[in-house]
Design a protein around this nucleic acid. Structure first.
Lengths: 368, 368
DNA sequence: ATTAGCACTCGAAAGGAAAGAGTGCCAACA
DNA sequence: TGTTGGCACTCTTTCCTTTCGAGTGCTAAT
């Protein structure tokens, strides 16, 4: 963090070595030594040479040693370099891709509880805890119907601008006239469609009440539902799955540490969309260790894919794990998931199924 | 398990001692010694006397020692005795009760996603993982409406016998006549109401199709939705929350052990309703260690409260933890939750709010 | 029937020695 | 100048031994 921050261009060999360290450390979770690298990475030179290089990589800030005389471990900066430049963008095999798409198809029959299903799927695929979230920006009502059931029961049905439909059964303590219900239905259908939540003012409600000649206060019940629906649909929804997979990772063998992070995650993961704003769909964002804003994530990494859920809705699926994470595989898988989601939910401008690895990976600038 | 199974009546003092051991062990999670009991339980006798009694309780099968020269720990049989006879049924203070009810009220505005909210609440209250599940038996359609939106779009709205309402937006590739939709709407409303899922036969669908003069295959789309709704509503739904709280318990400090159980739980907890059949609402059932059928639960305990969700629907909320569990407090809290749910969801025959501790606790017979 | 006393057991904690992995550096070499 | 083998050194991990203490079981006294 302090020394050697000036971004010098690494020699080819240094890059290869750094990549080898990351790969190996990701695989084994143990500090990797010069000998192992010499054996693995096919550059024809001896452990001693590699030791020299390693020492330099340490002083440049890409690697560190848990203690003198242990192998090297990537620093966040090292991972960042790996993710930005070194990592070979993994192309999943056709089978894998198809498998993911198949499983997605199975899940996504109804696009409503999609989020939770998708996050579960992401977690299964990656074996890390996963989270899914959606932010909608402006939602309006497209259509408003009221179904008269009996004298004190009716059903409100609202179709929103994102083509979801919400309904509510209302039971009143008093009897209402079927005519009144019909009047209200058409009044709401004309007065409350196409407007945002803010536009539902007491004024509007009052005038509707008067226009409908409603003396029983039914109007306000219906209006309350309209507001509720708009609020709820406009609010971001989040969902976390597979927290327990954290326990697979050796870095979370300490129950306290695991518990802290899991608690944070099941807390809703609200705070997760880390550097705010959702980016363009299709991009993948990687946040490594201290790059995360949330204190609880400072020594974990997050990989996030953004997808386009159509009609002003942006969604993200992400995965949380130790900094020692298989970024490449995770990114590839999330990318397919996100593409699939965009294709299904989005406006249809999404790329076709084949096109699964435009893998634009992007992260922080790297400076604190 | 092998010796001393004959249920002899324990002397008063043995009971007191056993209760003291359980209480203390629940509190500290460490084997409890004769000295501690002498100090705590106010029976005026010395550690030596207690040691004699303890030895007998061990040979009777109520207690065991992790090793010679450690304190005593309750066996499942010991816990069973404690739960059945010794435990003082805990009355929560008025404040606590009110707090629970208040929090329940906050959550339960909509009775739909109730289950997940309630399980979360149960977990928060008890600090153990919680699960909620519902079994519905027979659901029928009470009312069937189709809202015509435009030539290839309509909304199906179905009201079920349990007064929930489901809807689905249907987009057709072909244009349909508004008249046809109306015809279908009334045909379904007369033909598909009051019947169970089984009764939706191809025969019925065909005759409806013919009656509606439907040549576009719209009928089958609608019928498919009807089946889907009936299936889904009739299926039990389960929900687990707060798995991570398991990590609070010292017995789950071993990550592998914790992981096993958490995995089992997030697997859906299907298999949880252990000795099958839901009992009468209001009862609390305690399953201790080996009394559980699921292998994964053999050394954990489960406390389950059943509530009446009205109209053929039985629900359960339960809590999972180590056998060393604060049965009394958990039972009391679950009891209030279940009562609250019955009151809100059930037919209304539930006891009023004040009545929160009829705490009938019941478990297995205790023999394997 | 209860109790004080005491030897004994067994796990948990503390200390220490040995093993092993990996480094840093130096001197030799191409 | 860059690369390599060699070697001493460091630090962790592991295993063993010792110590400590809580708690028991038994016996003899009350």
């Amino acid at each position: 963090m302090q020394a050697g921050e000036q971004t010098m261009v690494l020699s080819e060999r240094k890059k290869k070595i750094l990549a080898a360290v990351v790969d190996e450390y990701v695989r084994t979770a143990e500090p990797v030594g010069s000998k192992a690298i010499a054996a693995k990475a096919g550059l024809g030179c001896s452990p001693a040479t590699i030791r020299n290089e390693l020492a330099e990589l340490v002083s440049l800030g890409y690697l560190e040693q848990p203690h003198t005389s242990a192998g090297r471990v990537p620093t966040p900066m090292g991972y960042r370099m790996y993710v930005n430049e070194l990592m070979e963008k993994q192309r999943l095999s056709l089978e894998e891709t198809e498998d993911i798409n198949r499983r997605m198809n199975q899940k996504l029959r109804e696009l409503d509880d999609t989020i939770s299903d998708v996050s579960r799927l992401a977690s299964q695929l990656t074996d890390y805890p996963a989270l899914a979230l959606t932010t909608r920006t402006t939602v309006t009502i497209k259509r408003f119907d009221i179904i008269y059931v009996d004298a004190n029961t009716f059903i409100i049905v609202v179709m929103l601008s994102d083509n979801t439909v919400k309904n509510k059964l209302v039971k009143l303590p008093v009897s209402v006239d079927q005519k009144l219900v019909q009047r209200l239905s058409s009044l709401f259908n004309s007065g409350f469609t196409g407007i945002t939540e803010d536009a539902v003012t007491p004024l509007l409600i009052n005038s509707t009440e008067r226009a409908a000649d409603d003396t029983m206060g039914v109007t306000s019940v219906i209006a309350a539902f309209a507001i509720e629906v708009l609020t709820e649909a406009g609010a971001p929804s989040a969902c976390v799955s597979g927290e327990n997979r954290l326990l697979n990772q050796p870095e979370f063998r300490d129950p306290d540490k695991a518990h802290r992070l899991m608690g944070y995650l099941s807390g809703g993961g609200y705070i997760l969309p880390p550097n705010a704003n959702m980016d363009e769909a299709g991009e993948i964002k990687v946040l490594i260790g201290p790059e995360n804003v949330a204190e609880e994530l400072k020594d974990s990494s997050v990989v996030i894919a953004t997808y386009d859920a159509g009609d002003n809705t942006r969604g993200m699926i992400g995965v949380v794990g130790p900094t020692r994470m298989d970024y490449s595989a995770v990114a590839a898988k999330l990318s397919i998931l996100a593409a699939g989601l965009s294709r299904r939910l989005g406006g249809g401008e999404a790329p076709p199924e084949g096109m699964h690895n435009k893998l634009i990976i992007k992260g922080d600038t790297g400076n604190e």
